[in-house]
Amino acid sequence: NKFNKEMRNAYWEILLLPNLNEQQKRAFIRSLYDDPSQSANLLAEAKKLNDAQA
């Protein structure tokens, strides 16, 4: 399933972002589970926040 693969990839990438705190990571991951079809958008948002907090 395409969404499962995308979601899994986004999950691990979000977990490994160094500048997000645990609460932020949990919020993004919760959103991933709520709507896996938004994986790419959520990952992009997480990366943007990660860069902003660098």
Rank of each mutant, 00 (worst) to 15 (best):
Ser39Pro: 13
Leu32Gln: 01
Asn19Ile: 09
Leu17Thr: 06
Glu22Ile: 10
Gln38His: 07
Ala44Trp: 08
Gln23Met: 08
Lys47Ala: 04
Ser39Gly: 03
Ile29Phe: 10
Ala44Arg: 04
Leu42Glu: 03
Glu13His: 14
Leu16Ala: 11
Tyr33Glu: 02
Ala27Ile: 10
Pro36Trp: 03
Ala52Asn: 10
Ala46Asp: 00
Glu13Met: 10
Phe3Asp: 15
Ile14Met: 08
Leu15Ser: 09
Ala46His: 00
Ile29His: 06
Lys48Met: 12
Trp12Leu: 02
Leu16Asn: 12
Ala46Met: 01
Lys47Tyr: 05
Arg30Gln: 13
Asn21Thr: 10
Lys5Pro: 04
Lys2Gln: 15
Leu17Gln: 08
Pro18Gly: 10
Ala40Ile: 14
Trp12Ser: 04
Asn19Lys: 13
Pro18Lys: 07
Arg30Met: 05
Lys48Ala: 14
Leu32Thr: 01
Ala54Gly: 11
Asn41Lys: 13
Asp34Trp: 09
Glu22Phe: 13
Ile29Gly: 03
Leu20Trp: 00
Ile14Val: 04
Leu32Ala: 01
Asp51Thr: 11
Asp51Ser: 11
Glu22Tyr: 11
Ile14Gly: 01
Pro18Asn: 08
Lys48Tyr: 10
Met7Lys: 00
Asn1Val: 03
Arg26Gly: 09
Gln53Pro: 07
Leu15Pro: 01
Lys2Leu: 06
Leu17Ala: 13
Leu15Phe: 11
Lys25Ala: 04
Arg8Lys: 07
Asn41Ile: 14
Arg26Asn: 05
Glu45Arg: 12
Gln23Asp: 10
Trp12Gln: 05
Leu20Ile: 11
Leu15Gln: 06
Trp12Ala: 05
Ile14Asp: 00
Tyr33Ala: 02
Gln24Asn: 09
Leu43Ala: 13
Glu22Asp: 10
Gln53Asp: 10
Asp34Ile: 14
Tyr33Pro: 02
Glu13Arg: 13
Arg8Tyr: 15
Arg8Gln: 15
Arg8Asn: 04
Glu22Ala: 12
Ala52Met: 11
Leu17Tyr: 05
Lys5Ser: 01
Asn41Thr: 14
Gln24Tyr: 05
Asp35Glu: 05
Asn41Pro: 08
Ala27Val: 14
Lys48Phe: 10
Arg26Ala: 04
Arg26Pro: 02
Ser31Glu: 14
Asn9Met: 14
Asn4Gly: 12
Asn9Val: 14
Ser31Pro: 05
Ala52Gly: 07
Asp34Met: 13
Lys2Met: 11
Leu16Ser: 13
Gln23Ala: 15
Gln24Ala: 14
Asp35Val: 07
Gln23Trp: 12
Ser31Met: 12
Leu20Asp: 00
Leu42Trp: 09
Ala54Arg: 09
Arg30Pro: 01
Gln53Ser: 09
Ser39Leu: 14
Asn50Ile: 03
Ile14Gln: 00
Leu20Glu: 00
Asn41Leu: 11
Gln24Leu: 07
Asn9Trp: 11
Gln24Glu: 11
Asn41Met: 09
Lys48His: 07
Lys47Leu: 04
Gln24Lys: 06
Asn4Trp: 15
Ala40Leu: 14
Asn9Tyr: 15
Arg26Lys: 05
Asn9Asp: 12
Ile14Trp: 00
Leu43Glu: 06
Ala44Asn: 12
Arg30Leu: 08
Ile29Met: 03
Trp12Met: 03
Gln23Phe: 07
Pro36Thr: 11
Ser37Gln: 11
Asn9Arg: 15
Phe28Arg: 04
Ala46Glu: 00
Asn9Phe: 14
Asn19Trp: 14
Glu6His: 03
Phe28Pro: 00
Asp35Asn: 10
Asn41Gln: 12
Ala27Thr: 14
Trp12Lys: 15
Asn4Met: 03
Ala40Met: 11
Ala40Asp: 07
Leu16Pro: 04
Ala27Gly: 11
Asp51Gln: 14
Lys47Thr: 03
Asp35Pro: 01
Arg26Leu: 04
Asp51Ile: 08
Asp34Gln: 12
Gln23His: 09
Gln38Asn: 05
Ala46Val: 05
Gln24Gly: 03
Gln38Pro: 02
Leu32Glu: 00
Asn50Ala: 10
Tyr11Val: 11
Asn9Ile: 14
Glu22Pro: 15
Pro18Trp: 03
Glu6Lys: 02
Leu32Phe: 03
Lys5Ile: 01
Ala46Trp: 01
Lys25Val: 07
Ser39Lys: 11
Tyr11Asn: 02
Ser31His: 09
Lys25Glu: 02
Glu22Met: 06
Asn50Val: 03
Leu17Trp: 04
Leu43Asn: 05
Lys2His: 15
Ala46Thr: 02
Ala44Val: 14
Asn41His: 11
Ala46Pro: 00
Asn9Glu: 14
Ser31Asp: 13
Leu16Lys: 11
Phe28Ile: 06
Gln24Met: 08
Ala52Phe: 10
Ala54Phe: 06
Leu16His: 15
Tyr11His: 04
Glu13Ile: 15
Leu49Asp: 06
Glu45Trp: 08
Lys2Arg: 10
Leu32Pro: 00
Arg26Ser: 05
Gln53Arg: 07
Glu6Tyr: 02
Gln38Val: 04
Ile14Arg: 00
Ala27Asp: 10
Ile14His: 00
Phe28Ala: 11
Glu45Pro: 01
Arg30Ser: 13
Leu15Lys: 11
Lys2Tyr: 04
Gln23Glu: 09
Tyr11Gly: 03
Leu15His: 13
Leu17Lys: 05
Ala10Leu: 03
Phe28Met: 13
Arg30Phe: 07
Leu42Pro: 03
Leu43Ile: 08
Asp34Asn: 07
Phe28Glu: 00
Ser31Thr: 07
Glu13Asp: 05
Pro36Tyr: 03
Asn1Tyr: 00
Leu32Ser: 01
Ala52Glu: 10
Glu6Leu: 03
Phe3Ser: 15
Leu20Lys: 00
Asp35Phe: 06
Glu22Lys: 13
Asn50Met: 03
Met7Ile: 07
Ser37Phe: 06
Ala44Leu: 11
Gln38Met: 06
Phe3Gln: 15
Lys2Val: 03
Arg8Ser: 08
Glu6Ile: 03
Asn19His: 14
Leu15Ile: 06
Asp34Gly: 10
Asp34Glu: 09
Pro18Ala: 08
Ala52Arg: 08
Gln23Lys: 09
Leu42Tyr: 07
Arg8Met: 15
Tyr11Ser: 03
Tyr11Arg: 06
Gln38Arg: 11
Ala46Arg: 00
Gln53Trp: 11
Met7His: 01
Ala54Glu: 07
Leu15Ala: 03
Ala40Gly: 06
Ser31Leu: 13
Asn1Arg: 03
Ser31Ala: 06
Glu45Asn: 13
Ala46Leu: 01
Asn4Pro: 15
Leu17Asn: 03
Phe3Ile: 15
Lys5His: 02
Asn1Glu: 13
Leu43Pro: 02
Pro36Arg: 04
Asp51Gly: 11
Glu45Leu: 09
Ala27Met: 08
Leu43Gln: 10
Asp51Val: 12
Phe28Val: 06
Glu13Asn: 14
Leu20Tyr: 00
Ile29Ala: 04
Phe3Tyr: 09
Asn50Ser: 04
Leu20Pro: 00
Arg30Glu: 06
Asn21Ser: 10
Gln38Ser: 13
Asn41Tyr: 10
Ser31Trp: 08
Asn50Phe: 01
Pro18Thr: 05
Leu17Met: 09
Trp12His: 14
Lys5Asp: 08
Asn21Ala: 13
Asn1Trp: 00
Lys47Glu: 03
Met7Asn: 01
Ala27Trp: 05
Ser31Gly: 12
Asn4Ile: 07
Ala46Asn: 00
Ile29Ser: 03
Leu16Gly: 15
Ala52His: 07
Gln53Asn: 09
Ser31Lys: 09
Glu13Tyr: 13
Asp34Lys: 12
Asn4Val: 02
Trp12Pro: 00
Ile29Asp: 00
Trp12Tyr: 08
